[in-house]
């Protein structure tokens, strides 16, 4: 389990990085590497070159810009989990980041890396879809904004081009919507068997965004029933449409949706 040989470049600026990605065919950006390096070690990823984004200044910042929370692609999961601005404006994101892997993985893994890798069982892509985040993709041609809801194509597939870097994400500041997050995993720190983010607006409308039960984040708008039995039927009907691995995952989808819903109301969904 050792990687194939590759060249290694360490750009000092984003402009240099995207130029390198353009100049070196078969090259791949590496940030935290917590998904990429296992793939390298298994020789399932075989890049010609790696362009290391870790030393690029400015990509690891969290700030409020106007009505949006802007998070750099190099922000580590543990930073995301602990950052006061994230906790204040997007507590559900801070919570989800705390569920990513284990401590040592969170210390190195990055937001941008997780989104670019797009594992269907990962938490952060689903939070971005739920939050209607916009991604800032940078290439040698310039910057383009892609909404999270158009970014994820399916299993490990995204709108990100091989010569692009996911430099930052922007989330709208919350507006009276309440959020709940829930996931089920075999062991704490494992990839989820099923997970959900539930949003409830004051007018009674809401949505559920699932992960780990399809090729990518799955968001459904609905008016959530107040009655528990009706709600259970709602979750089951929606879960039945999911392209999940098996009936068990679809069953869990309904379970986590309910838990996330109860948490969005500030109730303990166990």
């Amino acid at each position: 389990m050792k990687p194939v040989a590759f060249a290694y470049y360490r750009p000092q600026s984003l402009a240099e990085a995207v130029r390198m990605l353009r100049e070196h065919p078969g090259s791949k950006p590496i940030a935290g590497g917590q998904s990429l390096i296992p793939l390298l070690n298994f020789r399932m990823a075989r890049p010609e070159a790696l362009v290391d984004l870790n030393r690029i200044p400015g990509l690891d910042e969290v700030e409020v810009r106007g009505q949006r929370l802007r998070i750099g692609g190099l922000v580590r999961h543990q930073q995301l989990h602990e950052h006061p601005l994230v906790r204040q404006h997007w507590p559900v994101l801070a919570q989800a980041a705390g569920e990513v892997g284990h401590w040592a993985i969170r210390n190195r893994g990055t937001l941008g890396g997780s989104l670019a890798h797009a594992d269907p069982a990962a938490e952060l892509p689903a939070v971005m879809v739920a939050a209607d985040a916009v991604f800032e993709l940078v290439s040698a041609d310039g910057v383009r904004q892609v909404p999270a809801r158009e970014f994820f194509y399916g299993y490990l597939m995204t709108a990100l081009q091989p010569d692009e870097v996911l430099a930052a994400v922007e989330l709208p500041l919350a507006s009276g919507t309440s959020w709940g997050f829930a996931e089920v995993a075999r062991r704490p720190g494992d990839f989820a068997l099923a997970g959900a983010i539930c949003e409830c607006r004051p007018d009674g409308t809401g949505a559920v965004t699932w992960f780990a039960v399809g090729g990518g984040p799955e968001r459904h708008e609905l008016v959530v029933a107040a009655d528990a039995n009706e709600r259970a039927a709602q979750w089951q009907d929606l879960a039945a449409t999911l392209d999940a691995q098996d009936d068990y995952r679809r069953h869990l989808a309904a379970v986590v949706a309910e838990t996330a819903y109860l948490r969005s109301l500030g109730r303990d969904g166990q």
Binding site: Y8, P38, N41, L50, N107, R108
Partner: peptide, 15 residues
Amino acid sequence: VDGKPERSCLMLAVQ
């Protein structure tokens, strides 16, 4: 790595 626990199997030495 800089005081934080990280996996040395998931980091290249050059990094």
